[in-house]
């Protein structure tokens, strides 16, 4: 039970802190912000990796492997495109 409280606490805390921080991101950076957070949402790859830590059926391996391909695409592509856009902005 304490686990679920801890997890909900982490969810609430990071939501509030990120809300406060992201509210101050200027509009000019909204596209890079979106692709940046997009890349972070690929964190689901951790869940995909954990699927492979226990006995898995063939179907589970296929689905899990596909999940890793998709998440890695999102992860690497997201950080790459964010970096590319951020470099483009000249000051």
């Amino acid at each position: 039970m304490s686990d679920i409280l801890l997890m909900l606490g982490i969810f609430a805390f990071t939501s509030v802190v990120s809300y406060a921080l992201i509210s101050r991101v200027p509009q000019r950076l909204h596209t890079p912000l979106m692709s940046f957070t997009n890349a972070i949402s690929a964190v689901t790859i951790l869940g995909a990796l954990l699927l492979f830590t226990e006995e898995a059926t063939a179907l589970a391996i296929v689905l899990g492997g596909t999940a890793i391909v998709l998440a890695a695409f999102n992860l690497v592509g997201g950080f790459a495109i964010t970096g590319r856009m951020a470099r483009m902005f000249r000051q």
Partner: peptide
């Protein structure tokens, strides 16, 4: 996973 997901949800 929770924290990173929550950040993206907020954003």
């Amino acid at each position: 996973l929770i924290a990173a997901g929550a950040m993206v949800g907020s954003s």
